[in-house]
Simulated scan of single mutants.
Amino acid sequence: MPRASCPFKRLGFILGIKDKVAIVTGGAGGIGSAICRRFGEEGAKVAVFDINREAAETVAADIRAKGGNAQAFAVDLTNQDSVITAVTAAEQALGPTDVLVNNAGWDKIVAINLYGALYMHHAVAKGMVERGSGRLVNIASDAGRGGSSGEAVYSFCKGGLIAFSKTMARELARQQISVNVVCPGPTDAPLLDDICGEGERGEKLRTAFTRAVPFGRLGQPDDLPGAILFLSSDDASFITGQVLSVSGGLMMAG
Score class of each variant (00 low, 15 high):
residue 92 Q to I: 06
residue 61 A to Y: 09
residue 251 M to F: 13
residue 151 E to M: 15
residue 183 C to V: 05
residue 140 A to H: 07
residue 163 A to M: 12
residue 30 G to K: 01
residue 83 V to R: 06
residue 73 F to Y: 07
residue 180 N to F: 04
residue 12 G to C: 07
residue 221 P to Y: 07
residue 73 F to C: 01
residue 213 V to D: 04
residue 36 C to E: 04
residue 211 R to Q: 13
residue 158 K to F: 00
residue 39 F to W: 01
residue 35 I to S: 12
residue 74 A to W: 01
residue 249 G to D: 01
residue 247 S to C: 15
residue 162 I to D: 02
residue 189 A to C: 10
residue 139 I to F: 02
residue 156 F to N: 09
residue 237 S to K: 15
residue 1 M to K: 14
residue 203 E to S: 08
residue 141 S to Y: 02
residue 106 W to F: 12
residue 76 D to A: 14
residue 241 G to I: 10
residue 239 I to L: 05
residue 120 M to V: 02
residue 107 D to M: 13
residue 10 R to P: 06
residue 168 M to T: 10
residue 178 S to F: 00
residue 51 I to Y: 09
residue 62 D to Y: 05
residue 180 N to Y: 05
residue 86 A to Y: 10
residue 3 R to Q: 13
residue 12 G to D: 08
residue 210 T to I: 02
residue 161 L to K: 09
residue 212 A to N: 02
residue 231 L to T: 06
residue 229 L to D: 02
residue 164 F to M: 14
residue 89 A to G: 14
residue 37 R to I: 03
residue 111 A to L: 10
residue 234 D to M: 15
residue 33 S to T: 01
residue 128 M to C: 04
residue 186 P to C: 06
residue 71 Q to K: 14
residue 184 P to Q: 03
residue 190 P to G: 07
residue 127 G to E: 07
residue 99 V to S: 14
residue 87 V to W: 04
residue 227 A to I: 06
residue 139 I to W: 03
residue 185 G to C: 03
residue 11 L to F: 09
residue 232 S to I: 08
residue 221 P to M: 12
residue 166 K to T: 04
residue 69 N to G: 10
residue 167 T to R: 11
residue 125 A to F: 02
residue 147 G to M: 08
residue 198 E to V: 06
residue 9 K to Y: 10
residue 107 D to L: 14
residue 208 A to W: 10
residue 253 A to D: 06
residue 165 S to L: 11
residue 174 R to V: 06
residue 34 A to C: 12
residue 159 G to W: 00
residue 164 F to G: 11
residue 241 G to L: 12
residue 75 V to I: 07
residue 212 A to R: 05
residue 242 Q to C: 12
residue 16 G to Q: 11
residue 158 K to Q: 04
residue 146 G to V: 14
residue 72 A to Y: 05
residue 221 P to V: 08
residue 39 F to G: 13
residue 2 P to E: 08
residue 45 K to R: 14
residue 119 Y to N: 13
residue 69 N to V: 12
residue 224 L to P: 03
residue 71 Q to S: 13
residue 77 L to T: 01
residue 42 E to G: 09
residue 145 R to W: 09
residue 172 L to M: 12
residue 60 A to R: 01
residue 112 I to K: 13
residue 65 A to R: 14
residue 170 R to K: 15
residue 32 G to L: 11
residue 188 D to A: 15
residue 18 K to W: 02
residue 117 A to K: 09
residue 106 W to Q: 13
residue 78 T to Y: 10
residue 215 F to K: 15
residue 209 F to M: 13
residue 87 V to Q: 07
residue 155 S to R: 08
residue 179 V to M: 01
residue 68 G to R: 10
residue 212 A to L: 03
residue 120 M to K: 01
residue 2 P to W: 06
residue 22 A to M: 06
